[in-house]
Design a protein around this nucleic acid. Structure first.
Lengths: 220, 220
DNA sequence: ACCGGCCTCCCCCGCCCGGGGGAGACGGTC
DNA sequence: GACCGTCTCCCCCGGGCGGGGGAGGCCGGT
């Protein structure tokens, strides 16, 4: 039984491209298309796709709102991949925050697109593909701090949360972080929870992975 | 009250160098020296240092054996930093495996040495400093696989354990890894435990950090 | 003066994680 | 055949982790 996909994008050309790429795969089937987020919910209810490839920027209801709406109102919701053109992806972390399972660049190679669909269909999240790293690289590999700050800005981490994330990425436990920052463990737990939510991570391990992949912490 | 340090190295020159560097710090005090691992245990019992800086290569009893002996026979044992010249550090992971709290290159800059002593004295482990990365880099940055394999060989991970570590470094839970490898969760837990022990990591987060820092998993 | 963001701490609770042990099956080695 | 390493699964158990809420204080902006 193939992986069923619903395409949501206001540009017919993009939909056609995605369809061509995905339908070339024997195990993937495009079961529907929508031109705006507002049309997504009834379609999801009717078609019950495994995966929704959702554009972020659409006229009536954007991908963020649509993602949130689907996840809130549909039970046993599909996996949602947010598709972005990357130049205007202030929405990337927004999307992860509202519960998207991954994101994808429109300029991605076909093999990557197929790969992404299969991965999220398997239930694995795609939180940190090339996109985030490119985001970091965009700000110049020399300005590591600037890049990290850029990533941070998107995630909306506060100063304290960023500090906690750095210590998490050094392998410290909540108690150790509390000791280091001279605050209570409960406080650290609050910050950690905030970090996990904002990064779209399920646990501290995933958060640390995001920290590395985004260049927030480096290999220096 | 200052951090007390015991130096263990067969070369008087190295001991003198370490002493000079450490004693220059107001909060660090060198309380003793030994020329061989065999002399360490009584000294530790008598002096009760906070930190032992232990050379790996020594005539009668090497640093690995001495580390193991101290940690097994002394109660409330000191933190142990293994000092290596790096060319012959097949012992690095050996050391971490028997319970050392960190390692240090003899060629490290004074500030780094001081930093390392303070860190382990604070109870933080220094599992993945420059050493491991240099180890990886030594094998050529082009041959990423070769480098990863080299690190792995030192850690002594089996094929299955390496596989599990890779999945851990992608943020998967034990249950998800079990599903992926089509084995029981109990099996995965066994492998994870083995990985943690061999890498000297306390939890999966630290293991993933080691994986990144060693180049075992990359930022590609 | 009010509001909102941030930091701080608190409660309860379920669960995954990791340690400690043990054990059987297989394959290769000596 | 005996041995060892690997992979597989099992038990018990404590503790850290993370979710869900709530709440108070501080500061800066309106």
């Amino acid at each position: 039984m193939p992986i069923t996909v619903l395409l949501v994008d206001d540009e017919p050309l993009v939909r056609a491209g995605l369809r061509a790429v995905l339908e070339a795969q024997p195990d993937i089937e495009v079961v529907g298309e929508a031109a705006d987020g507002a049309a997504v919910i009834p379609l999801v209810r009717r078609l019950r796709p495994d995966v929704v490839a959702m554009d972020v920027r659409m006229p009536l209801m954007d991908g963020i709102e649509a993602t949130r709406a689907v996840l809130r109102t549909v039970e046993d919701p599909p996996k949602i991949i947010v598709v972005t053109t990357f130049e205007q992806d202030e929405y990337v972390y927004e999307a992860l925050r509202v519960g998207a399972d991954g994101f994808l660049l429109k300029r991605a190679r076909p093999a990557e697109i197929v790969h992404a669909v299969r991965l999220v269909a398997e239930g694995e999240s795609l939180l940190f593909p090339a996109s985030v790293r490119q985001l970091a690289a965009e700000y110049g590999e020399s300005g590591g701090n600037r890049a990290a700050r850029a990533v941070l800005d998107r995630a909306g981490l506060t100063g304290r949360e960023a500090e906690v994330l750095r210590l998490m990425a050094r392998g410290l436990s909540n108690a150790e972080i509390a000791g280091r920052l001279v605050v209570g463990v409960e406080t650290v737990k609050s910050h950690v929870s905030a970090v996990l939510t904002k990064l779209g991570a399920r646990d501290r391990t995933q958060a640390v992975i995001v920290a590395y992949e985004s260049g927030f912490v480096g290999l220096g």
